[in-house]
Design a binder for these strands. Sequence first.
DNA 1: CTGAAAGCGCTTACAG
DNA 2: CTGAAAGCGCTTACAG
Lengths: 338, 338
Amino acid sequence: MNLKEFSARIGLSQTTVSRALSGYPEVKQETRERVLAAAERFGYRPNVSAQRLATGRAGAIGIVFRGGGRFGPHSSEFMGGLSTRLQEDGIDILVSTVEGAGDEEAAYRRLAGSKRVDAVVLHSPACEDARIPLLRTLGLPFVVHGRSDTALPFAYLDIDNRGAIAAATRHLADLGHRRIALINGDTVSTYARDRDRGYHAVLAERGIAADPALLGHGEFTDETGFRLMQAFLALPAPPTAVIAGSMMSALGAMRAIRVAGLGVGNDISLVAHDDVFPYLSPENLVPPLTTTQSPIRAAGGRIGDMALRLLQGEPVESLQEVWPVDLVIRGSTGPAQA
Amino acid sequence: MNLKEFSARIGLSQTTVSRALSGYPEVKQETRERVLAAAERFGYRPNVSAQRLATGRAGAIGIVFRGGGRFGPHSSEFMGGLSTRLQEDGIDILVSTVEGAGDEEAAYRRLAGSKRVDAVVLHSPACEDARIPLLRTLGLPFVVHGRSDTALPFAYLDIDNRGAIAAATRHLADLGHRRIALINGDTVSTYARDRDRGYHAVLAERGIAADPALLGHGEFTDETGFRLMQAFLALPAPPTAVIAGSMMSALGAMRAIRVAGLGVGNDISLVAHDDVFPYLSPENLVPPLTTTQSPIRAAGGRIGDMALRLLQGEPVESLQEVWPVDLVIRGSTGPAQA
DNA sequence: CTGAAAGCGCTTACAG
DNA sequence: CTGAAAGCGCTTACAG
């Protein structure tokens, strides 16, 4: 049933019915109620394609993932928060997957050109990210999950990566550790740079010489965590503590520690950054893991919120947030062994 | 730029331009090339909302998730495959999240009523799933990931859950195990029933009495795996082998085994069903895990394919597949200890 | 507060 | 092989 039929059936014009359904103020309360009740009864729902064409709004927000749709756990949790939030406002979320970074530009051009989305969420920004000027050129509004160094302001939500890793490093230094390793993410991302900075700042603050051999970069997987930790343990002077950038890396690191016949928490202290996955809790590990925690799911929800506000015309300057990160001390960190 | 402007610019009618761009056969080759080149040069792309309204096709496929968007790793991998495949054909994927099962019906009604999607993918079916008759009533085409007992045929792709767990159980029995535990998924799903069946069939075949205390059900999380395994180990006669329904459960089970001071592979054999996650490989665990493996990502891709074919009018009877599952033997399974 | 009608940007049956 | 025009199902400026 379409609007024409439906409005004929209830003896009102299409105009009035449309307005009643869309919540416009100029409809009499009684009329609105009648329309809503009838829509419910007849099961009438406006055709979204027609609405979108008529209003010029796509009613959707886009997000592009590299790696051919190999969503990691971080992306999934983030998406869960984002889509749940956007759904409240009836906004669809359009996921595009591309193979490499080179295809990403084409994806944005396509999204913008075909008016398929009203805005996009940009994630995993590099320190100087070419996608930001591109989106500006395309006139496609965007919210960044993370930060980037740019001349012009933009909407973003980031967590305090620097502060988080600084807190973790400081906690370990307080326990007497002097050889502290860091398993960080890929090298181009701003978040990895910020974490490196937090780490180095505290080392300097405590008069600990930074050893490049104790700093590793790689994907947030169990395997990378394992491999990097094994390399650390094979050093002439292995670390007595390690900070893992994610729960996945931490699982691998724990494994490497055990394989080496060492104990987590007594021989080697371990802190992980936890993005909070419902299926993997740090307090359930043995020993329970000390973490810096920040639910990436909540960040997804908040970014959905910000995207909506951006589309309502809020200036980007008021859409910039940095979330603090808590350090939660559990059993995996302890005094440095002599 | 819209079609009117664009076609005026290149001196052709909207009709011809539209046909050239959509690949209709009646356009002269030379004209088509001219149009495509011009579209590229001017950056013209048809407005998708207008296309959708004109054609009556939503150009999108829907999928509904329960649990408020708390996507587990299985959903994510599946979605990666699905969206990558659909994207090849320019079909969007529309994710709806609902809280509980009760809200799911409303979600389908909304998707169907507003013509937001052309078809949906139904997942995690129960043995008798009310959503199947509902979708049929709504006239919304669908492909099921999994199977369900229904009178009428429908399109589906499932893996051979029964055969997979039967193979795992048989492998353990061959190694001399007589007390084999199974950590299965939730109880209502068809896949869990099929796995139970495969397990029980082999126990019967080998003359092993089934002990209900060795059969556990729950979410595929690290925590559930841990909890169930601890319960098994606390039995008067604990199992010497265990089959975990997912890699997540297996991680938890391994942890429980270690916490009990036992070794995986020597004291307790472990087989896991592996849906293949890029960030967690069974061969990287210590010991490497024996698994029944079936990439859920590939299943997502294939289901995208089937959905497309369904929309092209292929009969559901030709859209029914059951994938065999391989048993890959690694170090986590060994001879039963006396 | 309500309605007639134009317009959103496409596709496609029909005519040539 | 190409084009003029109707139609997809809404929204909304304008008029009353």
